[in-house]
Write a protein that binds this DNA or RNA. Structure first.
Lengths: 161, 161
DNA sequence: TATTGTTATACTCTATAACTATA
DNA sequence: TATAGTTATAGAGTATAACAATA
């Protein structure tokens, strides 16, 4: 740090950025990703793989397309992600009964165990994420984020290709 | 959509995911990024370039390292981003007065104009992002996100390399 | 002819290590 | 010897277009 009176500020003013909701959301997202990787170290699932596997368990037999839409992942990218899960023995693909074009996705027994192991650590993880907030603030934030997500998903100009 | 009684749910249950703060933050971040690109179409700045330029204007003469830390960008990646801003004539690099290793960053006149043009559209943009919330809810969310970001930045296990 | 999932591919973002020039 | 910024490079993540199978 400069010992002279130069213009270089070491205490940075981020006020104009913090005034924008999107910036705060993004910073929080980045920091939470960091925390996820710190806690669930190398051998485990990435946030995307974890979310996908959890969604498959909650919706056995779900199609690729429906899952991709729900998780905001493009179909080609989801295919690769699912391939990784299957290669790891955590999920299974099965041809659907009716429409022969579609594929039904299921979690496997090892997938269940992997998920349960991570979910066991999740309460402590979540608690550490919101450690800076009171319990009441955390509940409020959570509810507002869900409401915001719902609103943004169903928004008018969401002319998502 | 299947017309039989197959197990494929078209109404997806995301409850186990929405119960996790991190998932909601990530979804909101993704959706807000989409909105940003929809509004500030191709010729304009990316969210990262916009944030960086705004931070430079608020902190004239800031060093690369300090800026990278504030925006959670690695130094090599920030160098490339700044190179793009400079190539576009929006920012300038200048050798600092004291420590000859450091570089001081400044916004240019065209940079000011580009920023002002985007900032002029920002109130409407922000309003559309939080359209699903009441004014009071939006204020609460904003305050909680900022508090959360502060807490996560200064956290104990943020042994960020 | 349209749709589901896949393949191929490119582009961005990000991450690490090594280099330079200053300190 | 350590630090600031850069370069080089590789690895994720994500985007679009085109294809095969089925509707």
């Amino acid at each position: 740090m400069p010992r002279d009176g130069s213009t270089t500020p070491e205490t940075i003013d981020l006020a104009p950025l913090e005034a924008l909701v999107g910036f705060n959301v993004h910073i929080v997202d980045l920091l939470m990703y960091q925390r996820f990787y710190e806690r669930f170290a190398t051998p485990a699932l990435t946030p995307g793989e974890f979310s996908t596997l959890l969604a498959i368990r909650a919706n056995p037999g779900i199609r690729h397309g429906a899952l991709a839409d729900a998780l905001l992942i493009r179909r080609p990218n989801l295919t690769k992600l699912i391939n990784r899960l299957i290669a790891a023995g955590l999920a299974r693909r099965r041809r659907a009964k009716g429409d022969q074009r579609t594929v039904a996705l299921f979690i496997s027994a090892p997938g269940e165990r992997a998920l349960d192991a991570m979910l066991a650590a999740m309460p402590a993880h979540e608690a550490s994420l919101i450690a800076g907030l009171t319990a009441r603030e955390a509940r409020t934030l959570h509810a507002l984020l869900r409401k915001l997500a719902r609103g943004l998903r169903t928004a008018p100009d969401s002319a998502r290709h």
